[in-house]
């Protein structure tokens, strides 16, 4: 059996998945990026290799997410794809009739409009990360709740509090105020879920043609309170696919398989031994011009492998 590896290095979490020729998920993992994408990719590789029953040759590898270029250099990728394309591919594989995808991750949220399995429109949050996973994380910590239980609390609410959702700074002020005037946690959390959905629909989804079936994916889809808020706002059913958190990784694995088949070449994947290699990142500020670019260097056994971050590209290896 042949395997296809998809790696999604997001701002907050990193996801890996191995699929087979039938696009079935054989192994997967979900790790916190923890501000160290190199280490998390190495840990993830080691972990996923351990989850494969037998030695399975990787026929193709794809990377996506905001850390996709770094991850591709590390592992040797056949395709590097942006998150929007990757998510759309996975969504239309699992729910072929899908017309609208809501994707909310750690730092960004997107809407993807699909017609006949082709992306026809999309949008991402603009300059502000209001209402994404990291904000929910922060609020859960403030309310002393594990993020996993956040959604359940929302579902138990009877009178969701009205929270301002336009900006998370205002939302937080509002939440503190509600809390101090005696609203219970359930109502505040439900109110927050509604506010985030309202903000998402007014901002990210503004002007988009929202048609069912609706699919909700990305890490925040774990939060049943947000799903419920979407459903009540849209008055439609919203589907959370079983692999909601892996959709980017699955999408890019499918794309990697297509790409190598199209090229008729062997994979560029280096092997799982990458996990053990001595990769290091370092950074320095270039002072050759007033741009003072922060250049990041990835080295293997103290040999520079790749550099990025310079506007003029002079430092690239």
């Amino acid at each position: 059996m042949k395997g296809y590896l998809g790696i999604d290095v997001g701002s907050v979490t990193t996801k890996m998945v191995v699929i087979n020729e039938e696009n079935e998920v054989i192994a997967d993992n979900y790790l916190r990026t923890g501000g160290n994408p190199v280490k998390v990719v190495q840990d993830g590789l080691k972990d996923i290799e351990g989850r494969l029953d037998q030695a399975m040759p990787m026929e193709a590898v794809g990377t996506t997410g905001s850390g996709r270029y770094l991850a591709a250099t590390l592992v040797g990728a056949d395709i590097i794809k942006n998150e929007i394309t990757a998510h759309a591919v996975a969504a239309s594989y699992f729910i072929p009739q899908v017309q609208t995808v809501f994707e909310i991750g750690g730092q960004d949220s997107k809407i993807i409009i699909i017609r006949d399995q082709v992306v026809v429109d999309f949008a991402m949050n603009t300059v502000c990360a209001a209402g994404t996973g990291s904000f929910l994380d922060h609020q859960a910590a403030r309310l002393n709740l594990p993020i996993e239980e956040f959604g359940e609390y929302a579902l138990r609410a009877h009178n969701p509090a009205r929270i301002a959702g336009r900006c998370t700074v205002f939302a937080e002020t509002d939440m503190v105020h509600k809390q101090q005037t005696g609203h219970n946690r359930e109502d505040i959390i439900a109110g927050l879920c509604q506010a985030l959905v309202r903000n998402y629909l007014n901002n990210v989804a503004k002007g988009k043609e929202l048609l069912p079936p609706f699919v909700f994916q990305g890490g925040v889809a774990a939060n049943r309170g947000i799903k419920a808020a979407f459903e009540s706002e849209l008055e439609q059913e919203v589907t959370v696919p079983p692999h909601y958190v892996l959709m980017g990784a699955i999408g890019v694995a499918i794309l990697a398989r297509e790409e190598t088949a199209l090229r008729g070449e062997k994979t560029r994947f280096k092997s799982f031994e990458v996990a053990e290699a001595d990769y290091r990142t370092s950074s320095f500020q270039c002072s050759d011009c007033p741009n003072s670019c922060e250049v990041v260097q990835l080295s293997l056994n103290d040999e520079p492998l790749s550099r990025w971050g310079s506007r003029c590209r002079k430092w690239e290896v």
């Binding site: 942006n82 394309t85 082709v118």
Partner: peptide
Amino acid sequence: LILDEHSDETGVVTRVEAFLDMIRRK
């Protein structure tokens, strides 16, 4: 595209890549 003080290209690159991908796949 909304421009502000961001100094990292990732946001713009992702959007532009996705936009061109969409056009090509279409």
